Amino acid sequence: MIIKLRQTITLIFLLCINISFAVSDSLVFNGGTALVGEIKKMEKGVLEIDIPYGDENFKIKWQSIKEIYTKSQFLVSADGKVIYGRLESISDGKVKIFDESETYLICNLSDIVYLAQLKDGFDNRFTATLEAGFNLFKARDMQQFSLRSSAGYHEDKWSVNATYNIIRSSQNETESIKRTDGLLDYKRLLFKNWFGILTISTLSNTEQLIDIRANSQLGVGNYIYSSNKAYLILKIGINNNLERFSNIDESFNSWEGSLSTELNLYAVDGLELSFNYMGYSGLTEKGRYRADLNLDLKYDLPLDLFIRAGFVFNYDNQPAINSVQTDYVFRTGIGWEW
């Protein structure tokens, strides 16, 4: 009886605040505290809500939320499904996703992996990051500069992401080191946890004498595991590899099979660990194998700033003449994200 009375009082309180501030969404935390505002999104275990008395979106751990009530519709990823609807808690830890006439799903709050407000505004669907790093050493007047950038746009069933990274290093009595890589990735949801992918990537690398390596990949992927604490993706496809080396005049074109995995961990507040591995096996060049590995550790700072340390490794068992099979880069930097 006391519990029901407390819930009734909480709902009346939330309703009064909603009317007063003309906002639509409400949250109740595990300790019983209530918060109202406009929910923007929830991803990687963190929910963002715009509250009437704050200048910036308030960020809350998803696991600290006990109840949720929304008036507007959201794109919800839960239990291997993508659903459009409103959310309303019906008991401790349980929530229903529904519209005016139908209930689509009843699940645990912990089963919800992603939540996004259904708005058409560009700001609600666009993301970007920019990171820079610089090192200066007295010995041989050594200078190192790195830049990492990304931008993405997300619709309800598809997304496109682009990255561009450069590294420049110079020192006296040594040739300058230059490395540039770029990526354009299109992903479209097919059904349940499956999605189609179309990727174009480029690499220029003086260490392995690569003037340009352009990969065009078509394939499918699956979310092997997905939660509000981590996700694991497996992708398979076919790749066209166009290459030109700095010590050879002609270009080379070959076809490869590709297999990759992506792991992202974000259970610790503000800390994110991501791992990407891509392996290529020659179809028209029998016996050739290439691999690209990326490992990043990122920590969020106030004001949308972050610090990140990353490791990149490239392997080719049949490199250019007089080149090396491996190249690796370790880099650190501070960045900003939108």
Rank of each mutant, 00 (worst) to 15 (best):
G133M: 02
Q73H: 09
G93H: 03
G257C: 05
L75S: 15
S170V: 08
C107Q: 04
S260G: 11
F145T: 12
N215L: 12
L234T: 05
M142T: 12
Y153R: 06
I248P: 02
F98G: 11
F330M: 05
K178L: 03
N124T: 12
T174C: 04
S110W: 10
D327H: 12
N253W: 05
I2F: 05
L234M: 08
K94L: 12
V268C: 11
R213A: 10
F21K: 13
V28E: 10
I3C: 07
L14G: 12
L109N: 05
R331V: 10
F252S: 05
T129K: 08
V23H: 11
I307L: 04
N240A: 13
V28S: 13
G31I: 04
I12S: 06
L234P: 04
T129F: 14
G182Y: 01
V46S: 02
Y104Q: 03
L203P: 00
N205D: 14
I68F: 04
I65V: 14
I224A: 12
I177E: 10
V82P: 05
A22C: 14
N247L: 08
I39Q: 14
V113G: 02
P302S: 05
F13W: 01
N18E: 08
A78V: 02
G335Q: 04
E67R: 09
G335E: 10
R331D: 13
W255S: 13
L203G: 01
S91W: 06
N276T: 00
S89A: 08
Y69I: 09
E43S: 02
G45M: 05
Y277T: 01
V76M: 03
G152E: 10
I39F: 14
W338S: 15
E131N: 15
L14S: 13
S227C: 11
D79F: 10
T10S: 11
L15M: 03
R179V: 01
N240M: 07
T261W: 00
S149M: 14
D300F: 02
L183G: 10
T103V: 07
I19T: 11
Y225C: 12
E250T: 01
L209G: 07
G237I: 06
S24K: 11
E56F: 07
A132R: 07
V82S: 03
N18P: 02
K41P: 02
R290S: 07
Y299A: 06
Y231A: 05
Y84W: 14
R179F: 04
A22Y: 06
N135R: 08
E173N: 14
G133E: 08
N314I: 01
N57P: 12
A132D: 15
L295A: 08
L118P: 15
K66P: 01
I236L: 11
T129A: 15
V23I: 10
N172Y: 04
G219K: 02
L301C: 07
Q143D: 15
L301S: 09
G257M: 09
T10M: 03
F21M: 13
S146C: 12
T10D: 09
D316A: 09
D50Q: 05
R244Y: 00
V329L: 10
I106T: 09
S146T: 13
D50H: 06
N294A: 11
L209M: 03
L271E: 00
F137H: 14
G279T: 03
F74T: 07
